[in-house]
Simulated scan of single mutants.
Amino acid sequence: MCRWLAYLGEPLRPATIVLDAKHSIVAQSLNSPLGAETVNGDGFGFGWYPTGEDSPAEPALFHSTEPAWNDENLRELTGAIKSHLFFTHVRAAAGPPIQQTNCHPFRYENWMFMHNGAIAEWPKIKRDLTVLIDPSLYPHVLGTTDSEVVFHLALTYGLRDDPLGALGRAIRTVEEIGNKHGTQFPWNGTVAISDGSTLWTTRYSSQGRTRSLFHSADIPSIREMYPDVERLNAFGERAKVVVSEPLNDLPGVFVEVPESSAVILDDDGYRQEQFLAA
């Protein structure tokens, strides 16, 4: 459906991986070998947390309905700023129209959210899910995607205090309502969420056949495997990427995230746990 990338680590110019990697997210927008669609040209989004003591807590967003490969502003922006945590998403629209308010990532206060996948038969269950959103949050739903509704449903269920628990409750609600409407496998998706310091990502589908998701190995291990690759000097010791598809062809650099799993990145490093496992 789409492709996305999330980075957490030492401040980095996003262009280093968004544009310059062999299989960058922009390259994947043109040719996505592991995606449900080869081309993801229905708009894109870039969200980042500004770096520095006086920086605001809220992330900044740049959305465009142009294909990522055709947007000069994305090149200018990702080459000019530095950020310790950023999201990039290229979209293949599955029904909702191509408009800026439907481009990921989505933002609420200091939180960012993006999703690759879909709610099956979304028009059937859209109303039932939307009315469950807390009335105080509903005005912040600006687009028409299933992803944005799930984000605000998770906020309703306590995302700010328990991100994985709230997201899990939102997805279970999608499954329950979908099943009531006769949909056998309502949910499919990989999700990234952040509050500006921690990154939570998940891979789960009702059918157990989720879109692809990978995380990078730790930088010291990669340098040990590939001591002659000068490009690795651009990354700090804590740099980590979670991405829909590997950014290069070097064996061992990217590791597939298992089905029904969550990957958490924070100041303590990397950890993985089960997510909505049967």
Rank of each mutant, 00 (worst) to 15 (best):
T51M: 00
H140V: 01
L8Y: 00
T51H: 10
L30M: 14
Q207L: 13
S212C: 02
D161F: 04
L167S: 06
S260Y: 12
R3H: 12
I17D: 02
F275M: 13
S83F: 00
T202I: 13
W48T: 01
E176F: 02
T190N: 12
L8K: 15
A15H: 14
F113H: 01
G95N: 04
P14I: 04
F46Q: 11
T198N: 09
A262D: 08
Q207P: 00
L276Q: 10
L74R: 08
T183H: 00
T38W: 08
W122V: 02
R107K: 14
R127T: 12
S83I: 01
S260G: 06
V229L: 14
N40V: 06
T78P: 05
A234V: 11
P96E: 11
G178R: 03
P251T: 04
V241Y: 11
D218H: 13
M225N: 05
T145D: 06
H84V: 00
S29W: 12
S24V: 07
G158L: 03
A234T: 10
G117D: 03
Q207S: 15
A60E: 12
R203L: 09
S216R: 07
P227L: 09
N248V: 02
P227N: 08
W4N: 09
K240R: 15
H84A: 14
Y270P: 02
E66Q: 15
P258I: 09
L213S: 02
R223N: 09
D162F: 06
G79D: 06
N179W: 12
R238A: 07
R223T: 08
L5K: 05
P163C: 11
V257W: 00
G252F: 06
D249R: 05
H152W: 02
R169Y: 08
L276T: 11
E237Y: 08
N116Q: 05
A94M: 10
E121M: 11
E256Q: 15
A15R: 15
P50M: 03
S194C: 09
L167G: 07
G196L: 00
G168M: 11
T51S: 06
L77E: 04
P227S: 07
E53N: 10
G35E: 10
G158N: 05
R107H: 05
N116C: 04
T210K: 07
P163G: 13
E237C: 06
P220K: 04
H115G: 04
S24Q: 06
